[in-house]
């Protein structure tokens, strides 16, 4: 295997994340307490998702510049793994929410719809829906070049519409979710410095893992294409 250092780095970083994340000291905050350790998993999933979607869009732009089908396959698989990361982000978020928001004594949280009307959840839902639509659009076109071109255009357009709204919506709506003012988890006042030494490696580790999965999928896809052509 060539250039395997980043895969090893990914594994090491993730081991460090899990071990350090569960064992190191965390600041005890009211209502959060030990659940704050979920930061190393939940927030990283969203970071990885955004990074993978961004890579996907870059590949779409590359495709439109060169018309090389390889980039379209890249874009598709980065988007797919981004969706997986987003789903995991929801799952970890739901676990976290069970312990912090779902307070039976608080009447505001009684129904699911009251909780779901949450700008971060809406934003994430929009992002996932857009990429589901991207997949549906891809599958609805049979011609290969046409599919690549049209879905690239949609990918760029949707991305350009999506990201402003993800950044804007939480700032205009009321929210329970932390990190409403400014960029969540990047603000220096948001998280304790003792957590940061695990958080940043965790982001890199999860993202590298996502990229690794994607490259495997891409190689499989390229091999299939080769078999079809020969």
């Amino acid at each position: 295997m060539y250039k395997s250092w980043w895969k090893i780095a990914s594994i090491l970083l993730l081991i460090y994340t899990v071990v350090g994340g569960f064992l190191m000291k965390v600041p005890a905050l009211p209502a959060l307490q030990e659940t704050i350790r979920n930061l190393y998993f939940h927030v990283c999933m969203w970071f990885a998702m955004m990074i993978l979607f961004t890579v996907s869009v870059v590949n779409s732009i590359k495709y439109l510049r060169t018309f090389n089908l390889k980039y379209d396959i890249y874009a598709r698989h980065y988007a797919a793994v981004g969706i997986v990361m987003g789903a995991l982000g929801y799952a970890t978020g739901a676990i976290w929410m069970t312990y912090t928001w779902a307070d039976p004594n608080n009447p505001a949280f009684q129904s699911f719809s009251a909780l779901a009307r949450e700008p971060k959840l809406i934003g994430a839902a929009i992002a996932l829906l857009i990429y589901f639509a991207y997949m549906v659009l891809r599958d609805s076109i049979s011609d290969m070049d046409k599919r690549a071109r049209i879905s690239s255009v949609y990918n760029i357009f949707a991305y350009a519409m999506l990201f402003p709204s993800i950044w804007i919506l939480p700032r205009v709506m009321d929210s329970l979710h932390p990190g409403r003012e400014g960029n969540p988890a990047l603000n220096t006042s948001d998280i304790d410095s003792s957590m940061r030494i695990i958080f940043y490696p965790a982001v890199i580790g999860w993202t590298l893992l996502g990229v690794w999965i994607t490259t495997l999928k891409i190689r499989l896809h390229l091999l299939k294409e080769k078999q079809l052509l020969s």
Binding site: I126, I130, L137, M161, S165
Partner: peptide
């Protein structure tokens, strides 16, 4: 399908 997610924020 394509449009609804994009138009929701607006």
């Amino acid at each position: 399908v394509l449009g609804f997610p994009i138009i929701i924020p607006q």
